[in-house]
């Protein structure tokens, strides 16, 4: 199987939780330097799809290949920013310790973090403009700052694929803008996939859009048909195209 050029290849993947299908017949190819936004309602399987790519959820049927290998082998090349809100803010851990966790795959068991690990963690913190908060307990930071720490943790691994789960949730609009500008810079070095329930925020910045509601609607482009959106959101959705960039608006 030669799929080296493709970052992720998903073929006819189904996922069931207790025999209820969460993902149905998913086919998706993510290429190098893709900046893909996946939008869809909550509970539509967005996080599950990311977890399939990470090998955290095993599909009941279908094939998943990441950099030509199984997700378990290739996930060392993946940076993952989980849905923020799932953290215990009381947890006694500093920003520095959290970002170093991104380097776990690079140091063996029984070993301390190496100088390389520390350099990569420092770089990641600098990139996210969080160096000065290095020794702060994570729970003592604002929501936006915590968010940057978790992105820094993902970047510390020098990933070739970055997966972000609802990255815009919990941060205000100005920081969101900066955040998307940062992703613009990162996309020259890695493929980026972000999932969100918020169409308007995502659609302005990403290069390609897919819709997910148990089934995936994707045309390897930023084009979405009215049928795609209706199937995803189960309500009439109007597409307004002013040339480039596309604006996709929902009518309620």
């Amino acid at each position: 199987m030669n799929m080296t050029a493709d970052v992720v290849v998903i073929k006819d993947v189904w996922v069931h939780y207790d025999s209820i299908p969460v993902l149905e017949e998913i086919n998706l190819v993510i290429k190098e330097h893709d900046f893909l936004g996946i939008i869809g309602v909550n509970g539509g399987g967005k996080s599950t799809l990311l977890k399939v790519i990470l090998g955290l959820v095993k599909p009941s049927k279908g094939i998943v290949r990441v950099f030509g290998d199984t997700p378990q082998i290739s996930r060392k090349y993946i940076g993952y920013v989980p849905q923020y809100s799932l953290f215990d803010l009381e947890f006694p851990v500093s920003v520095w310790e959290v970002v170093l966790m991104g380097r776990l795959g690079h140091t063996g068991l029984f070993k301390r973090y190496s100088e390389d690990d520390k350099r990569a963690a420092l770089d990641a913190l600098a990139k996210m403009d969080m160096l000065e908060y290095k020794d702060r307990q994570v729970g003592k930071l604002s929501g936006g700052q915590q968010h940057r720490v978790f992105i820094a943790r993902a970047l510390a691994a020098n990933p070739k694929l970055l997966l972000l789960d609802e990255p815009a949730a919990g941060i205000d609009t100005i920081i969101q803008e900066e955040f998307y500008e940062l992703l613009e810079k990162l996309k020259t070095k890695m493929a980026i996939v972000l999932v969100s329930h918020d169409i308007s925020a995502v659609s302005v910045y990403v290069d390609k859009i897919a819709c997910l509601n148990h089934r995936l609607y994707y045309h390897d482009s930023k084009e979405l048909t009215a049928e795609d959106l209706e199937a995803t959101y189960h309500c009439p959705v109007e597409l307004i195209a002013h040339g480039v960039p596309h604006r996709v608006l929902k009518k309620h």
């Binding site: 996930r75 060392k76 215990d88 691994a157």
Partner: peptide, 12 residues
């Protein structure tokens, strides 16, 4: 302890 899922992704 902090984030079991992320630890798994990083090969733990």
């Amino acid at each position: 302890c902090f984030d079991e899922e992320f630890a798994t992704v990083r090969g733990v």
